[in-house]
């Protein structure tokens, strides 16, 4: 019962998200809009109810199960994207290396200068 009440909250936020997506004509998925609204609601309330915590933990722990059918599809679309796989792999490898490097460098520069300012200033 406890988990069901939390699940109802999640589904209601999802439905609200879908409603906003359609009514406002946003190109953003209803799940994300629901998540943003849920986070903002929690920040306003300042606490998470046990029901909601239990239900969200339950769903998050089986996330891998829920995305597995989509991942299986990768093996059956190989033909559809034949000739694109080199592009995909090169873009992912070089793109990820560059973005990891940039993130770390940016964080180091900004965090480093901030701490120096605090300790020496």
């Amino acid at each position: 019962m406890v988990i069901l009440r939390g699940f109802l909250v999640l589904v209601v936020f999802f439905l609200l998200g879908e409603a906003i997506r359609v009514l406002a004509g946003l190109p953003i998925s209803g799940g994300v809009l629901g998540m943003v609204m849920a986070t903002l609601t929690l920040m306003v309330r300042g606490r998470v109810s046990n029901e909601l915590a239990a239900a969200s933990q339950g769903l998050i722990s089986v996330l891998v199960l829920l995305i597995t059918p989509g991942v299986v599809g990768v093996f059956f679309i190989a033909d559809q994207f034949s000739g694109h796989w080199t592009t995909v792999v090169v873009a992912l490898v070089i793109g990820t290396l560059l973005s990891v490097f940039t993130t770390l460098l940016l964080m180091k520069k900004v965090a480093g200068s901030g701490e120096e300012g605090n300790s020496r200033g």
Binding site: F14, M35, S56
Partner: peptide, 20 residues
């Protein structure tokens, strides 16, 4: 099963709030 990804996405808001 995949239909549950909708509410599961909403569920990610809880840990996000806890890390804020």
């Amino acid at each position: 099963l995949t239909i549950l990804l909708g509410p599961a996405t909403v569920a990610l808001g809880v840990p996000l709030y806890q890390q804020v």
